[in-house]
């Protein structure tokens, strides 16, 4: 392998993980640049994982002030800094993350996510957005797709004890190892917009119900101009009505999107820390795979619901 060797310090620090993914992958990780927007508990879990893994740089974006709610699932902000001094969520998280691994360059990018243009994203290999509006998901995903280089795009959301990850690696080739031989594999991913536009009736019967439920809630927040997670029990009747309309339009039986599930997503919008940890872990692993080019990447949705305990991959694409 050409390129610099890992330093002694890196070899010592990353010893255990190099034994999992090899030196080559570690080298690629250390040259990669990751962008994360929306720093609630799940994104913070992801940031921790990726900083520990030893990416080259991590850029954080979240101008929100630190509130009680934001702190609920955040282990990055020590109490003494919580209220005093101000500072955005991104700034306070940045300080702690730097501490986790001095070899990773962690920085803050101020500004509204929607204000970043296409060229902004060119600096990155991986873009992760969390707790964003439907519009933001679509638009950031499209911006990443406009670039000539491939930028891996992910969304991650946790509501109550449910979670969803979306992955867009565009056209992705990787070496799949089977028994003895290595097979060159190619995957074609749809964008977020393309994926969610697929008519529900054409999706597999056993699809995770959480997929539909998340789409209903996402659509509700979009139509009502709410911020992500800005829902309460009062909204339930309207959400159920929207569910019925969507199911009718898609010729899907309403039982595929149960009332009880929607109620959980609408009422309890706080992230459940154990689920954040699980989602942050799965997402961390996926990003490491995408950067290193090693391992079968997830295509293209992942769902977890702690009620049944299953962590399921769903392929929602027309290809």
């Amino acid at each position: 392998m050409n390129g610099e060797e890992l330093t002694e310090q890196e070899t010592a620090l990353y010893d255990r993980q190099i034994r999992v993914w090899g030196v080559d992958a570690q080298r690629r990780l250390s040259k990669s640049h990751v962008f994360v927007s929306g720093l609630k508990g799940t994104a913070v879990e992801f940031c921790k994982n990726i900083v520990l893994a030893g990416v080259g740089s991590l850029t954080l974006n979240d101008d929100n002030p630190v509130t009680e709610d934001a702190l609920a699932a955040n282990f990055l902000i020590p109490l003494d800094e919580k209220m005093g001094g101000g500072g955005s969520l991104a700034e306070l998280c940045c300080d702690s993350l730097k501490d986790f691994n001095p070899m990773v360059h962690v920085s803050v990018e101020k500004g509204d996510l929607s204000s970043f243009d296409v060229s902004f994203f060119e600096k990155f290999d991986v873009v992760v957005i969390s707790c964003c509006s439907l519009a933001a998901k679509k638009s950031v995903n499209e911006k990443c797709r406009k670039l000539s280089k491939r930028v891996a795009f992910y969304t991650v959301d946790c509501r109550d004890s449910c979670g969803e990850i979306f992955v867009d690696l565009q056209k992705y080739s990787y070496a799949q190892k089977k028994a003895d031989e290595t097979v060159e594999c190619q995957l074609q991913y749809p964008s977020f917009e393309e994926a969610i536009a697929i008519p529900w009736r054409s999706l597999p019967k056993k699809l995770a119900k959480l997929y539909y439920a998340m789409r209903v809630v996402e659509r509700f927040e979009d139509v009502e101009k709410r911020k992500p997670g800005e829902t309460s029990i009062e909204d339930l009747p309207s959400v159920l009505k929207l569910r019925n309309e969507l199911c009718l339009a898609h010729s899907l039986n309403e039982s595929q999107v149960p009332d009880s599930l929607l109620e959980r997503l609408v009422v309890s919008t706080r992230e459940f820390p154990p689920v954040s940890a699980i989602l942050g872990g799965i997402l961390g692993q996926e990003v490491i795979k995408a950067i290193s080019g090693k391992g079968d990447p997830l295509k293209n949705f992942f769902f977890f619901d702690s009620v049944d305990g299953k962590g399921v991959i769903e392929d929602i694409s027309t290809f």
Binding site: K48, A277, G280
Partner: peptide
């Protein structure tokens, strides 16, 4: 060293997932 020390592969992500499941 891996063989002599019987070093077990370990990464942060799996530990985070498992810890989440333990709490559940």
């Amino acid at each position: 060293k891996g063989i002599a020390g019987n070093i077990v592969h370990a990464v942060a992500t799996t530990n985070a997932i498992i810890a989440g499941l333990i709490v559940v």
